Simulated scan of single mutants.
Amino acid sequence: MSITRHDSNQRMSQLVVHGNTAYLAGQVADDFNADITTQTQQVLAKVESLLATAGSDKDHILSATIIIKDMAQFGEMNAVWDAWVADSGKPARAAIQADMAAPNILVEICVIAAVK
């Protein structure tokens, strides 16, 4: 089975497709100065774009890992997630609080999805 890597640099690829499975690197917002709602919206837009590149979509997400900087903002992030995933198959999901690579990153999302 082939492995296809997209948007690679010396350290990582944003998307790796192996067989009928797509693996996305952790996605973060474009605007680190935005609030958690906007950052979550931006992250999910990136996830959708990468899934489309892989030949997949949010209905085919198998698993999602959400890393959040501050659990006090969990409800705000969940409101965006719930609206985004509302009509889709609900993936297995984990959410953890952690220090981020940059101080203004509020949320990072990693997903694994089936390719259609």
Results as ranks from 00 to 15, higher is better:
A92N: 06
V115L: 05
A64C: 11
I109F: 12
N9S: 08
L106D: 01
N33K: 08
H6Y: 15
S13E: 06
N104I: 05
Q10F: 15
L50S: 06
Q14E: 07
M1C: 03
D99C: 00
D31M: 00
A29Q: 06
P91R: 03
Q10K: 09
A86D: 03
T37K: 03
A79Q: 10
M100P: 14
D82R: 08
V28W: 11
A114Q: 13
Q73Y: 15
D99T: 06
L51N: 00
K116F: 15
N33T: 10
D87Y: 14
E48D: 12
E76C: 01
K116G: 07
M100N: 01
A45P: 14
T37M: 00
Q41N: 07
D57N: 13
V28L: 00
S8I: 08
M12V: 11
A79I: 05
A79F: 13
I66R: 03
T40W: 08
T53H: 11
Q10D: 12
S49C: 02
M77G: 04
Q39G: 07
V107P: 06
K58G: 03
V111E: 00
L50A: 00
M1V: 10
A54W: 15
I66H: 10
T21Y: 15
Q14V: 02
P103Q: 06
E108V: 10
R11D: 07
D59F: 15
N78R: 09
I105W: 14
N78S: 08
T65M: 01
V115C: 08
N104M: 03
A34Q: 00
T38K: 02
E76P: 14
L62I: 12
S13Q: 02
M100W: 14
D7R: 05
A92V: 08
S88L: 05
S8K: 03
T21Q: 05
E108T: 10
F32N: 07
